[in-house]
């Protein structure tokens, strides 16, 4: 057990573990970058980075893969966060796919996600010459993520080989790579969704307002509640957006993220609401539903 001290509470133990991981990467890797995806996990991870290197600022830039289809409130929050922290924010999108007009309506969730997120991410990492990239993924999110190491090795093609992962022991992470290879690092590996919300509560962190219930224009489609965030939303014949009190458990591109009916407007209310939930966190992510091993496939190709 890396942290045998029973005196540390659960959250403080997770915090110390994440800070250790963040520092280890900065000490050993030449060019780290933090994938900042604006959601609650990124919020917790960025806060941990600020703590890890205090009083210095985190010695790496933030990278946001901008698909062009994020909720407007997410973009506002992202830009405010960059201003507040003073960190360099790199924005990158798949320019070729954007030129070709790739969108979540015409091209299907799978192709869209590959082009706009996976390919864009691979481009951005190569462009920046980054050898280590932090991500906010947690092992409790999904069963292929439950299999991933804290330091997850990527080949020259940024691919994950789940059948041949580097063994990993105690707090000893091996971040050594050859030129062109990289490491994806997950400081929140051992956190659960509840832990993240408890931490946000304990540290009084601000999150995107979309996590809290509010009346929003919604259409119901294949059993999912889709919020109409802007005029680009393609409405099906007969569909009329209706105002409903909804919130998001997980945030992605707006046409691919399902909302849930909710009255929770504070973090304690979100935590209380989670106790009664019978759906898993990524249940609202339409991109995960293609196949049982959909996430693994995406990850193998270089998705975060």
């Amino acid at each position: 057990m890396p942290v045998p001290n029973a005196a540390l509470t659960h959250l403080r133990r997770l915090e110390a573990e994440a800070i250790h991981i963040l520092r280890e990467v900065v000490a050993e890797c030449a060019a780290p970058v933090m994938l900042y995806s604006i959601g609650k996990d990124s919020t917790a991870m960025l806060h941990l980075a600020i703590k890890a290197f205090h009083p210095a600022p985190p010695p790496f830039p933030l990278l946001h893969i901008d698909t062009g289809w994020k909720f407007r409130e997410m973009i506002t929050f992202r830009d405010a966060t960059a201003r507040r922290t003073g960190l360099r924010l790199i924005l990158h999108g798949n320019a070729a796919a954007q030129r070709d007009g790739v969108n979540p309506f015409d091209h299907g969730a799978a192709y869209y996600t590959h082009a706009m997120k996976t390919v864009a991410l691979r481009e951005a990492l190569a462009l920046g010459g980054f050898d280590a990239a932090f991500g906010g993924a947690r092992r409790d999110e999904e069963k292929s993520r439950a299999k991933e190491r804290v330091f997850s090795f990527r080949s020259e093609r940024q691919e994950w080989d789940p059948k041949n992962q580097r063994p990993e022991f105690w707090r000893l992470y091996n971040g050594r790579v050859k030129p062109g290879q990289g490491i994806r690092v997950f400081p929140l590996s051992n956190w659960t969704e509840r832990d993240v919300w408890h931490y946000i509560l304990a540290e009084r962190l601000e999150v995107v307002p979309l996590y809290f219930a509010a009346p929003r224009p919604v259409v119901e489609r294949d059993g999912s509640l889709i919020v109409v965030d802007d005029a680009r939303m393609r409405l099906w014949p007969g569909e009329v957006p209706r105002q409903r009190r909804v919130r998001f458990r997980s945030l992605g591109c707006y046409p691919l993220s399902a909302a849930q009916p909710s009255a929770a407007t504070t973090v304690p209310e979100i935590l209380a609401e989670m106790e009664g939930l019978r759906q898993s966190e990524r249940g609202g992510r339409l991109i995960d539903r293609d196949a049982a091993d959909s996430m693994e496939k995406k990850k193998r190709e270089g998705y975060f």
């Binding site: 092992r139 409790d140 999904e142 069963k143 292929s144 993520r145 439950a146 299999k147 789940p162 059948k163 992962q165 590996s189 051992n190 659960t192 049982a292 091993d293 693994e296 496939k297």
Partner: peptide, 22 residues
């Protein structure tokens, strides 16, 4: 199959790598 999260594991009915559950 709740814990064997990799495609190769489900196909072969074996566990290849550690799964962490919380």
């Amino acid at each position: 199959l709740l814990v064997d999260g990799l495609a190769a594991e489900r196909e072969q009915g074996i566990t290849i790598d550690v799964a962490w559950r919380y």
